[in-house]
Design a protein around this nucleic acid. Sequence first.
DNA 1: TTCAACCCTGACACCGGTGTCATAATGTGA
DNA 2: TCACATTATGACACCGGTGTCAGGGTTGAA
Lengths: 337, 337
Amino acid sequence: MKKVTINSVASYAGVSKKTVSRVLNNEPNVSDATREKVLKVFKELDYTPNPIARGLAQNRSFIIGCIYDNPSKSYITRVQTGALAACQGNNYNLLIHPCDLRGDALISNIEHLLHSSRLDGLVLTPPFSDFKVLVDFLKRKKIPYARVASAVLEDDSISVRSNDEQGAFEITEHLIKLGHKAIAFIKGHPDHSATEQRFKGYRRALSTHGIEFNERLVEEGNFSYHSGVDSARSILDLTPRPTAVFASNDYMAAAVLKLATQRQLKVPNDISIAGFDNAPIARHIWPGLTTIAQPVEEMTKQAVTKLIEHIGDPQEQPYQVTLEARLITRESTAQVK
Amino acid sequence: MKKVTINSVASYAGVSKKTVSRVLNNEPNVSDATREKVLKVFKELDYTPNPIARGLAQNRSFIIGCIYDNPSKSYITRVQTGALAACQGNNYNLLIHPCDLRGDALISNIEHLLHSSRLDGLVLTPPFSDFKVLVDFLKRKKIPYARVASAVLEDDSISVRSNDEQGAFEITEHLIKLGHKAIAFIKGHPDHSATEQRFKGYRRALSTHGIEFNERLVEEGNFSYHSGVDSARSILDLTPRPTAVFASNDYMAAAVLKLATQRQLKVPNDISIAGFDNAPIARHIWPGLTTIAQPVEEMTKQAVTKLIEHIGDPQEQPYQVTLEARLITRESTAQVK
DNA sequence: TTCAACCCTGACACCGGTGTCATAATGTGA
DNA sequence: TCACATTATGACACCGGTGTCAGGGTTGAA
């Protein structure tokens, strides 16, 4: 396989390489005849421009970085799927970069990443989406970025989220309509803005339906399965035991289910359990978890698509969208007895 | 932030850029004094070489591609973790590229990927690790590659695997020692070489312990949760019902567990269930699954590390390693009654 | 002392594209 | 028909590194 460069194309087509470059980039000021001719040579020689050389000349890498620090692997997988879908159509690549939110070295870590890989932009996934220190840093350095699933919509950035508060409201209301009054709640990781949003939705549903909020029914989790086990223990030990548990994600809900089952409780007859996210595990266990389906892939895909547009044309408008979350009822919730 | 290039370093240190380049690449023939001086300037100016420029000059991209077509997301996640660990220390990046094994366009898809992204090498994960068409193509094109979890060790390539056959043998033997004689088996995806290996281990354990192999106890799955449900249905409908089921991965085992539980069977009292891989789900459900822990991260890390070495020095020896798989017993298997 | 061998160093071309600017070709209005 | 604007094209430098090679300085053996 001999290499086909812009020079071979140029000499073969009998034009200068600058003209080939013009055709490549759809620039104006090329006659139709010349453009046709060059395009034909592209096909004949099966020419693909070298992204590295382009990158060097334009100081671009055609790579988007995706940074994350998330205990939920399935969430990350879904984020990647969405991001890849956006990259593939645009000749962009996706570089994945796990890192510590809490580490003091975070900023210098990111700085090194940007510097050494010359990323064109960054996708911020929770909990980075609302991490002010980082966002401010990127703004100051003028690094293009897009935020996925952040709580707040700013005016001047790309941000795609889903309505966590409303989702939590709906699933709590679902439990209330099944007759539940004592509904325990397991919070997510304090660094994630979704944690606060979901909690708000839970409280709004309670107050909408005239149920008094009870502090003792709330446990602090961190989205990990393990934290769900700890929270579940506290909740199941309460007397009287709540008739329902709403965990801020499916992993923690699965942990509640596991512990309840270990303790010979029947789900949903003895206790109803609801989760959030519609992670694969929600349908891999018995009983299947009632949960809220978040369009994670779609959110990320839109965010990355807009990010790439923005990189190509920095004048591009900001983009602020909220997608809908959807209630999915399965076997883990039932009428209270 | 002003840009620090090799030129600034060179003029600041009072040497030519070639000398700076020599220091950068640890080349010989630089006096200690000069080397020290340049290294000091690196620090003072906080210089990081531009990988794009290096890539252009050396016709390298410093990117490893990881291709996969795997229903098990958690497997992919683990592969990524291992690959990233190897990349990070070596200033390499990881590009992830899902694609269809069965598509006729596979080769041209990969060809385009290689051509347009100038990948330095490829990590082949199952089922690509043993996909002859692709391996032959890469060999012919002289693209460096490493295989993870392939069934066969070749002489001239980088390949890191774990002992699937032995793992399957051990877990089957574990069941046999618990008194099980009618042990159903669910096969994996026919494209994956692990499928055959695990089946072999199962049969070897049976014959070692003088148990006759029974074709009717074997179901065809494909590693997906869904296929596990179908297989589970057939198995649980058998009369007499087997006292144990060994599924070729944890997702399918989880499906068996779910269906058995739905049918009011007690696991492990009424039926024992064993899986393979030690996926997260194995410990997220109740009862936890007895399974075989494969060092997926470690396999991938070693494979990628060797791949990067090989790229840097094509004379590098081939590398053929088999890591050990380990039996993990949880609550899903018990003495037969 | 002499000369080859070796070590260090820098000048320069090159990787494969893009940006800038000059120039040739064409079009337009008076 | 001429002056001037506009379009099409190419020459050339440049992005930030690396490869090649030549030349000056040392060293060691003859």
